[in-house]
Design a protein around this nucleic acid. Structure first.
Length: 715
RNA sequence: GGCGAGGUAGCUCAGUUGGUUAGAGCACAGGAUUCAUAACCCUGAGGUCACGAGUUCAAAUCUCGUUCUCGCUACCA
C-alpha cells in the first residue's frame, strides 16, 4: 500500500433542522475524527470537512413548526451543531454551511457543467400547484388523508401516523398547506440525472473493483440498488428554499437538496483553502488524493451511487472508500427523533460534560463507549449499563488506574523523577514488554488503515492491560522492602525498581500517543502529567522507549477518569423513558404536526365539510363474501368474491394481515360499489370493502347488526 | 413477495480462502495481592455457533429449505 499524497475526509453533512443524536455521532463523525487525528499525527496532508446541510423542504417545514423563518432555523441549529461537535472533540478543519454564497456558486457551477455537457435530461410532468400562493408544491407541502391508515394529516411524501412513504397523488383530498386550498395539477419542467446511463460504470467500479476493500454491507446495499434498476433522478424541484437553478427558464426552481448537499463537501474545501491560503483543486482533482466519506447506512445510495456519478461527470476524483456504519440502537429500540427515543449530543453534553464532576474527560468517555460498540459490521446496541461498565471497568480500572499507579509508584519509589534504565539488569520480561509496546503501534496502525476502529481501540486498552500485568509480575513495592541496615533499599532491588518504573512510564507516554486519536482530551492530560509537550503525540514517536528523559521530575498524579454512579444511570434511563412516554401521550391529544396545521385537521379529526350531494355520489351496498383467497406473493392482499344480490364481484382488499381467507367467508360487509375499477397485482378490483380501524391498528368489518339480504342499499 | 445484511457464551462482539478440544472483553465464581479510583493480577465456570437437511475424510464456515431481526422495495381504493 503506497501512501497517498493527500487525504480529503468528509463526514455526512448533518441536516440543520434539529439536534443530532449519538447515533449520528457514532456513525459518521466520531470514526472520521479518529481517522483524521491518526492521519494528522502521521503528519499526512489531510483536510477534514463537514458542515450543515441547510436546504430541502424539511427546513421551511421546521420553520413553520417553530413559527419562524427558514433562515432563522438554520441560523439557530448551525451554531449549536458546530458547538456540539467541538464539545465532543470532533475537530473539523472546516465546518461550513450550504447556505453560504460560496456553496451556491459551487453547486450552480456543478449543475451548469453537467447540463452543458448534456449529462442531464429534461422532463415535463404534472405537479400539484397552489393557485393562491402561485407556487408549485413540494410533496411535503401537500396534506391529505393517508390511503393506508386514513390519518387525516398525512404529508405528500410520508404519513407520520403509520410511517408509510407516499407520493402526493396517493393522498385522498389533497390540500395545500400554504393556502389551505385544494391544489390543481399543472405542467412543470425538471432536470434529471439519468443514473441508468451509468449502470455499467457503477457495476464495475463497486461490484468488481471495490468488492473486497469496501465493507460487505456497503457493497451489498449498492448491489441491491443497482440490481433493482437505476432510474433518472430529479435534480431540480419547485421550491423557493435552496440553490437557485442557474437558468433563465428555471425561475422558481432550486436544486434538489440531495444534489447540492454533497457538493457542500467541495465548497467547504474551497472555503478552507481560502481561510488557509491553500489550493483546493488537488483535493478534488488529483488522482493522488484519497477521498473517504464517513456516513451512516441511510446515506449509502447517495455516496456510493449518485454522488460518484456526479463526480465522474464533473471530472472529479472518486471516493477511495465509503466506510458506512450501520445503525446504533438505544436500550433495545431504534433511535428515533420523532418518537423521542434517543440521546442528543446536546443532552449528553449538558448532563455529563458540563456538570461539576464532568468536563472533557466525559467527552472521552462517550467517545470510548461509542467506539467500543461502533456498528461497523451490523447494528449495535447502546445501553446505559454498558456505558457505565465500559467506563468503570475499562477506562477507570484498567487504563486510568494503570497511569495512576505508575505515577504514584514513581513518586514513592523513585523520588518523583524518571528513573534510569539499567541495561545490564534487563530481564526477559522487561524485553518482552518493550517489544509489546512496539508491536502495539503496528497493530493499531494496521487496524486504523482498515477502518477497524473498534479493534484498534481494543489494542490500545490492551497495552494498558499489558502494563498492569507487567507491573504485577515485577512487584516493585515488594522489592522496596529489601532495605539495608540504614533503611535504604539495597542496590539490586533499586535497579530492578528503576527498570520497572522506567518501562512503565515510557509505556504511559506510548499510551498517550496511541490513545490520542480516540480520546484526545485524555492524551493531552497524560502529556500534562508527564510534563511533556503535545508534540510528543506525533505518531512516529509511538513504539519508542525514550519519550521521557531520565531524571526529569513529573507532576503529582491526577485521576484521568471518575467512576460513574448507578444513580446517574438510573436517572438517564428514567429520563429516556419519561421523554418517550410524554411524546406518546401528546400524540393522542395533539397530532404530530398540530401547531402548524389548518384548524380542521388539528382540532378535530374530521374531514372538511361536504354537502349531501357529495355523499349521494357514493353507492354503498351490503354484500356477502362468498369466497376469499390470498393473492400470491403479496403480503396484504386478499382476493374476494362478494355477492351483491344483483351480481357477484371480484374485489381485492388489503386485509390479509388481519384475516385468514377461510375465517371471513360468509361475512357480510359494506361495499362501495361505484368506485372506479383498479388493477392490483394483475387482478381487477371492482369496489372497496369498508373497514374500521381500532386504536391498536386492527381492522374490523362494517356490517349490519343482523344478516340481511345482499344488495341492500346503505345510506 | 423481491433484494441486501444479520442471528456465535448472561451482555457487547471477533471468527481470514471449510482443518486439531469455537475466541476476546465485560459481567460472574474462586484464589492471590495492596503501589493504585475495593482498582490490579492469576485461575475457573459458561456455547447442539437460530433450526432442519445435504456436500465433504472434515462445516460456525459451502449448498438448499425453515424461522426471526434490520434496511431498501412492491402490494393497500
Amino acid at each position: 500500500m503506497n501512501t497517498p499524497k493527500r487525504y480529503l475526509i468528509t463526514s455526512a453533512l448533518p441536516y440543520a433542522n434539529g439536534l443530532k443524536h449519538i447515533g449520528h455521532l457514532a456513525g459518521a463523525y466520531l470514526p472520521a475524527d479518529i481517522y483524521v487525528r491518526y492521519l494528522k499525527a502521521q503528519k499526512r496532508d489531510v483536510v477534514f470537512v463537514c458542515g450543515s446541510d441547510e436546504h430541502g423542504t424539511a427546513i421551511p417545514i421546521q420553520a413553520t413548526k417553530e413559527e419562524t423563518t427558514a433562515r432563522a432555523i438554520i441560523d439557530k441549529y448551525h451554531p449549536i451543531m458546530k458547538q456540539n461537535f467541538s464539545d465532543l472533540g470532533i475537530e473539523f478543519d472546516i465546518y461550513h454551511r450550504t447556505s453560504d454564497p460560496l456553496h451556491h456558486e459551487t453547486a450552480q457551477e456543478f449543475f451548469t457543467k453537467l447540463n452543458d455537457n448534456g449529462d442531464l435530461e429534461i422532463k415535463e410532468s404534472e405537479q400539484y400547484f397552489d393557485e393562491q400562493a402561485n407556487s408549485f408544491l413540494a410533496d411535503r407541502y401537500i396534506k391529505g388523508t393517508c390511503p393506508n391508515c386514513n390519518f387525516p394529516g398525512a404529508y405528500g411524501d410520508q404519513c407520520e401516523n403509520c410511517g408509510k412513504s407516499l407520493s402526493p397523488d396517493e393522498l385522498i383530498n389533497p390540500v395545500s398547506t400554504l393556502s389551505g386550498n385544494p391544489p390543481i395539477k399543472k405542467l412543470t419542467k425538471h432536470w434529471y440525472l439519468p443514473l441508468n446511463r451509468h449502470e455499467d460504470f457503477l457495476r464495475n467500479w463497486i461490484l468488481k473493483e471495490h468488492a473486497s476493500d469496501w465493507r460487505p454491507t456497503v457493497v451489498g446495499q449498492c448491489k441491491s440498488w443497482i440490481d433493482g434498476g437505476l432510474q433518472p433522478r430529479a435534480v431540480t424541484r419547485d421550491l423557493d428554499w435552496g440553490v437557485k437553478v442557474p437558468l433563465k427558464e428555471a425561475d422558481g426552481k432550486v436544486l434538489y437538496v440531495w444534489f447540492d448537499a454533497p457538493i457542500g463537501y467541495i465548497s467547504a474545501t474551497k472555503q478552507w483553502a481560502l481561510n488557509n491560503e491553500k489550493d483546493w483543486r488537488p483535493y478534488w482533482e488529483d488522482k493522488d488524493t484519497k477521498l473517504v466519506h464517513f456516513i451512516g447506512k441511510d446515506n449509502i445510495v447517495f455516496h456510493c451511487l449518485i454522488f460518484p456519478v456526479m463526480l465522474k461527470l464533473h471530472g472529479n476524483i472518486l471516493p477511495d472508500n465509503v466506510p458506512s456504519n450501520e445503525f446504533m440502537n438505544l436500550e433495545g429500540d431504534k433511535m428515533s427523533t420523532s418518537r423521542n427515543w434517543k440521546l442528543d449530543m446536546q443532552d449528553y453534553i449538558d448532563d455529563f460534560i458540563k456538570k461539576e464532576n464532568g468536563g472533557s474527560q466525559m467527552a472521552d468517555v462517550l467517545r470510548y463507549y461509542l467506539t467500543l460498540i461502533a456498528p461497523e459490521t451490523k447494528d449495535s446496541e447502546f445501553t446505559w449499563q454498558g456505558f457505565q461498565d465500559a467506563n468503570n471497568s475499562e477506562l477507570v480500572s484498567i487504563f486510568g488506574n494503570y497511569i495512576n499507579r505508575s505515577l504514584v509508584l514513581m513518586h514513592k519509589l523513585c523520588k518523583g523523577k524518571v528513573p534510569p534504565l539499567h541495561n545490564d539488569g534487563l530481564t526477559d520480561l522487561d524485553r518482552a514488554t518493550i517489544e509489546e509496546i512496539e508491536a502495539c503501534k503496528q497493530k493499531v496502525e494496521n487496524l486504523l488503515e482498515q477502518y477497524k476502529f473498534r479493534d484498534a481501540l481494543f489494542e490500545v486498552i490492551n497495552l494498558a492491560r499489558t502494563g498492569n500485568q507487567y507491573m504485577q509480575k515485577k512487584e516493585p513495592w515488594i522489592l522496596a522492602k529489601q532495605v539495608d541496615a540504614d533503611g535504604n533499599v539495597i542496590h539490586e532491588a533499586q535497579q530492578s525498581i528503576d527498570n520497572t518504573l522506567h518501562i512503565c512510564l515510557q509505556l504511559c507516554a506510548n499510551l498517550a500517543i496511541l490513545i490520542n486519536p480516540f480520546l484526545p482530551f485524555t492524551a493531552r492530560k497524560i502529556c500534562h502529567l508527564l510534563k511533556v509537550v503535545d508534540k510528543i503525540l506525533d505518531w512516529k514517536n509511538a513504539g519508542k522507549m525514550k519519550l521521557l528523559s531520565v531524571g526529569y521530575t513529573l507532576r503529582a498524579p491526577e485521576l484521568l477518569f471518575r467512576k460513574i454512579e448507578d444513580s446517574e444511570i438510573t436517572y438517564q434511563l428514567e429520563k429516556l423513558k419519561a421523554a418517550s412516554v410524554k411524546r406518546e401521550a401528546s400524540v393522542v391529544s395533539d397530532p404530530v404536526t398540530a401547531k402548524t396545521e389548518e384548524p380542521v385537521a388539528a382540532n378535530s379529526p374530521v374531514k372538511p365539510e361536504i354537502v349531501f350531494d357529495d355523499f349521494a355520489k357514493i353507492d354503498l351496498k351490503v354484500g356477502k363474501i362468498v369466497s376469499a383467497e390470498k393473492v400470491e406473493k403479496v403480503d396484504k392482499l386478499l382476493k374476494l368474491s362478494v355477492d351483491l344480490g344483483f351480481e357477484t364481484r371480484t374485489i381485492v382488499s388489503g386485509i390479509a394481515l388481519h384475516f385468514a381467507p377461510e375465517e371471513i367467508v360468509g361475512k357480510q360487509v359494506t361495499v362501495v360499489t361505484n368506485l372506479a375499477p383498479r388493477k392490483m397485482r394483475g387482478i381487477e378490483s371492482n369496489g372497496m370493502i369498508l373497514m374500521a380501524e381500532d386504536t391498536n391498528g386492527k381492522l374490523h368489518f362494517i356490517n349490519p347488526e343482523t344478516e340481511i339480504d345482499p344488495g341492500a342499499g346503505v345510506s
